[in-house]
């Protein structure tokens, strides 16, 4: 963790890092429906351990994140994706 280091910088002087605006990948492709058996599009939104990547990280919009979670959960149920994977 960068912040937990010993060098103390006051909040005012700390440089604010600028992040690039993240764009929802489904909005960019104009996908309205996320299909649970289309694993190619689900795989990148899953962590190594099989967890769902949060929208904070992936930059997905709320609507698509909601649809994504149901798609991933369905895919898990039918064993297209793992519930968890050993690290």
């Amino acid at each position: 963790m960068a912040r937990s280091g010993g060098n103390k910088i006051s909040k005012s002087t700390r440089k604010k890092t600028q992040f690039a605006q993240k764009i929802c990948r489904f909005c960019a492709d104009k996908v309205t429906r996320i299909v649970f058996y289309d694993i190619k599009s689900l795989k990148p939104l899953i962590s190594e351990r099989g967890k769902i990547v949060s929208s904070r990280i992936s930059g997905n919009c709320a609507m698509h994140q909601r649809r994504l979670t149901t798609a991933i959960k369905r895919a898990r149920n039918i064993a297209l994706l793992p519930f968890s994977e050993a690290s």
């Binding site: 289309d38 694993i39 190619k40 369905r74 149920n77 039918i78 064993a79 297209l80």
Partner: peptide, 28 residues
């Protein structure tokens, strides 16, 4: 194991149209 899902008319239409979204099959 099995999974049963209800489809709306619109979804069904899409499913019937898209014959080859089976890239899921190729990959895994």
């Amino acid at each position: 194991k099995f999974l049963v899902i209800k489809l709306s008319d619109k979804e069904l239409e899409q499913e019937m149209k898209s014959d080859e979204i089976d890239n899921a099959v190729e990959e895994t």
